[in-house]
Design a protein around this nucleic acid. Structure first.
Lengths: 98, 98
DNA sequence: CGTGTAAGGAATTCTGACACG
DNA sequence: CGTGTAAGGAATTCTGACACG
């Protein structure tokens, strides 16, 4: 982890390939971006995704199938981020203690 | 290794991005393919590269700068493959021996 | 709300060729 | 041999909108 991570987070994949990889339509992928569930980079207006984005989209697809709305998914994401930031603070505090 | 490898070897990157990543021109990248140094997949005629291909291209770029010809690079690659196949046979023979 | 589709335009990629050397 | 470039065409992607619900 952390070195090969470059691959996972590098935004290099265009939407057509992401569509093939996830099974989602390009319309769906763009809509999830509109709903702030996914954040591709842009290269001259053209969206570029990472493998991490692809994974994220597969999670979204699963939740949507279960009937979870984009708003709910968005809320869950926000919570998870909150958790991770807290975790980060905890680590900063106790790393050299225990 | 082996699980996250999926990212490294998945052919999902188009030539424009590969060009940005490697600093090579599209012309050069296509030429190295013509010389059998690199083997992208095709999606409706459009070349798709993996991160492994990108690394390979950076190696090629370095060798070219040193004045190594594409033919020589090709020969070196062939030798390396030969080595690895031999290594594979060795492993198959002695894995459960030592 | 979530997704499909037709529409017109902009950006990307492809090949074969000519050029230089 | 290795790489640049102009040329014309094909495939991709983009946005805003209408549709259904």
């Amino acid at each position: 982890m952390a070195y090969d991570d470059s691959y996972k987070f590098k935004k290099v994949i265009s939407i057509g390939i992401v569509s093939e990889l996830t099974g989602l339509s390009q319309r769906q992928i763009r809509y999830y971006e509109e709903r702030k569930l996914i954040f591709p980079d842009r290269s001259k207006g053209i969206r570029k995704y990472s493998f991490a984005d692809v994974e994220q989209l597969m999670d979204i697809a699963n939740k949507r199938e279960e009937g979870v709305t984009t708003r709910e998914i968005r809320n869950e994401m926000t919570k998870e981020i909150r958790q991770k930031m807290l975790q980060g603070q905890m680590n900063a505090h106790f790393r050299f203690r225990a």
